[in-house]
């Protein structure tokens, strides 16, 4: 089965859980920016976790299938329609051969995920189907999706259709002003008390130059003790580095693997999804949590203890 791209949208890429195991070779993880929404979209159409989906940024795509398909979308609200009839997030739909599925501008949130039952079949490169734009590798020919592309959809057991169509999850509402939890470090000791105070007690604005590599923030300058330069060390999804201008950058899915700026804090993994949906001009503030509390909390949620 094929999915034809009639209009590509502003930045549409094939993404999955990410590419792991190659960080030591200079290859970053990539993958869906908002893993939570990506996973739910996959789940709604009955895909196993890890199947590739489309990530839309700000403006979604228009697509047509050459055969009947089951689709679902999650993440940002993009006014999706099938042949002009509005469809909702968080719910699978059957789309018939030749029908047109369209997405508009993101009106709430920034990134939406379109999952198709059977998953998007692109070659697995270094254990992942994710597009790494900087390395021009993975995904659909190592690049963003363009108008005229035809994506192959994997096989799907149509007898499961009726059960699948009953799936439903709540669609999120994203706020223009978010507070994300962070764990201090690894280089919080590079900053003065004043600098840490600024970081934790003021609000930053998402800059329009933000992308899949990083969310650039602008706001009050964060003071360091002796500059921000360190001998480069490792970076993770959610590392917050402060550049020599004193402004923070939150490193996201397409982050470099190593970097030479001090990192004041790291966003906890559960909160990355909100940053992935933050739009230019939105407000971000930071709340310090302890690592031990986070990990205890996680275990409690997993095993249902209070």
């Amino acid at each position: 089965m094929k999915m034809y791209i009639e209009k590509a949208g502003s930045l549409t890429t094939v993404q999955d859980e990410g590419r792991f195991g190659y960080m030591e070779y200079g290859v970053g993880e990539s993958g869906a920016m908002d893993r939570y929404s990506y996973r739910l979209a996959n789940k709604l159409v009955g895909n196993e976790n890890g199947e590739a989906a489309l990530e839309f940024t700000f403006i979604g795509a228009d697509v047509v299938f050459n055969s009947d398909a089951i689709i679902a979308y999650m993440g940002a609200e993009m006014n999706a329609e099938i042949d002009g009839v509005s469809i909702k997030r968080g719910k699978p739909y059957e789309i018939y051969e030749g029908q047109k599925l369209t997405f508009g501008f993101a009106i709430n949130g920034l990134r939406a995920y379109l999952a198709v039952a059977g998953g998007i079949e692109v070659p697995v490169v270094m254990d992942s189907r994710s597009t790494n734009l900087k390395c021009q590798m993975g995904g659909y020919m190592g690049r963003k999706i363009e108008t005229g592309d035809a994506l192959t959809i994997g096989g799907f057991d149509y007898s499961k259709k009726d059960a699948l169509l009953k799936n439903k999850v709540e669609a999120p509402t994203y706020s223009d002003s978010i507070c994300v939890r962070v764990i201090k470090g690894p280089q919080d000791d590079y900053f003065t008390d004043e600098g840490l105070n600024t970081f934790f007690n003021t609000t930053y604005k998402v800059s329009p130059e933000s992308d899949r590599m990083g969310i650039r923030l602008s706001g009050e300058t964060i003071e360091s003790k002796n500059g921000m330069d360190i001998v480069s060390d490792g970076i993770t999804f959610g590392s917050i580095q402060v550049t020599s201008s004193g402004q923070p950058i939150i490193l996201m899915a397409d982050h470099q693997t190593t970097g030479g700026y001090a990192k004041i804090a790291t966003v906890v993994s559960e909160d990355l999804q909100y940053l992935a949906q933050a739009r230019p001009g939105n407000e971000v503030s930071f709340k310090c949590v302890s690592l031990q509390d986070m990990q205890k909390g996680l275990i409690h949620r997993l095993f249902g203890k209070k």
């Binding site: 470090g185 690894p186 001998v231 790291t266 966003v267 906890v268 993994s269 690592l291 996680l298």
Partner: peptide, 17 residues
């Protein structure tokens, strides 16, 4: 031992190359 969020840890041996 320096935490880098809730899913990574940095073990540092020094400051220089």
């Amino acid at each position: 031992f320096l935490p880098a969020g809730d899913e990574a840890l940095i073990v540092e041996f020094g400051m220089e190359i």
